[in-house]
Amino acid sequence: MQIRRAVEGDAEALAEVHHRSRESAGGLIPPAVHPVEALHRFTRDVVVPHREAYLAEDHDGTALGTLVLDGDDVDWLYVAPEAQGRGVGRALLEHAKSLRPNGLALWAFASNHPARTFYERHGFVAVRETDGDNEEGAPDVRYVWGGHPEATDPATGASGHR
């Protein structure tokens, strides 16, 4: 497996991994609010040209997973259903950590217990929850790793989250 920066021609593969991963999650995450065609346009017009998008590929070029960073936020981390359980998510998350050694943050749906367990196993700490302040209107949890500004200062107990 290799992880590389996505280019314009990768937009379809990125969108498909995102879509298929969400679809395979069943009831763990709410359904997407936008049609798949809009996801493809958004990926082509916004994600690839304006964010840091990475593609994990098998040796034959098959898309296995996606990572999108927006500043110090992990905006997307999706693994193709057939590649789950093979270390793709771990490799993508380690790649993100190597790119942002000072800290990362992300949102996970409160109902997505496998994702939450995954992030916690990799050192992310929940710092706050919402009752659905997102497009899907579903409760979510904010996670941080490392020295991210939203992390709680252990010496004072003060939280840096906004």
Rank of each mutant, 00 (worst) to 15 (best):
Q2A: 07
R4D: 01
R4S: 03
R5G: 00
R5Y: 01
E8M: 03
E8N: 13
E8F: 06
G9H: 10
G9Q: 14
A11F: 09
A11H: 14
E12I: 10
A15P: 07
A15R: 14
E16A: 04
H18M: 11
R20F: 00
R20I: 00
S21K: 15
S21P: 08
R22M: 11
E23H: 13
S24C: 06
G26C: 09
G27I: 11
V33H: 11
V33D: 07
V33A: 04
A38C: 02
L39P: 01
H40L: 13
F42K: 11
T43E: 02
R44M: 01
V46F: 08
V47L: 15
V48D: 06
V48F: 11
V48C: 10
P49F: 09
H50M: 05
R51L: 03
L55D: 12
L55Q: 01
L55W: 04
D58M: 02
H59E: 13
D60V: 06
G61W: 08
T62E: 14
L64M: 15
L64W: 12
G65N: 14
G65Y: 12
L67T: 03
V68M: 01
V68D: 04
G71Y: 11
G71E: 09
D72Y: 00
D73Q: 10
W76A: 05
Y78D: 08
Y78I: 01
Y78V: 02
V79P: 09
A80F: 03
A80P: 00
A80E: 02
E82Q: 13
G85I: 08
G85M: 10
G85L: 10
V88G: 07
G89M: 10
G89F: 04
G89K: 09
A91P: 02
A91C: 05
A91T: 15
L93V: 07
L93P: 05
L93D: 05
E94N: 11
H95I: 00
R100N: 05
N102W: 01
N102C: 01
G103T: 11
A105V: 06
L106M: 13
F109P: 06
F109I: 09
N112V: 05
H113K: 01
H113E: 15
P114V: 04
P114Q: 09
A115P: 04
R116C: 11
F118N: 00
Y119H: 01
Y119M: 06
E120S: 14
E120F: 00
F124V: 00
F124D: 02
A126G: 07
A126T: 14
R128Q: 10
E129H: 14
T130F: 07
G132S: 10
E136A: 15
A138C: 05
A138N: 04
A138S: 14
P139G: 00
V141S: 09
V141D: 02
R142F: 09
R142G: 09
Y143F: 15
V144N: 13
V144C: 02
G146M: 02
G146P: 03
G147M: 04
G147Q: 08
H148E: 03
A151K: 14
T152F: 03
D153G: 11
A158I: 08
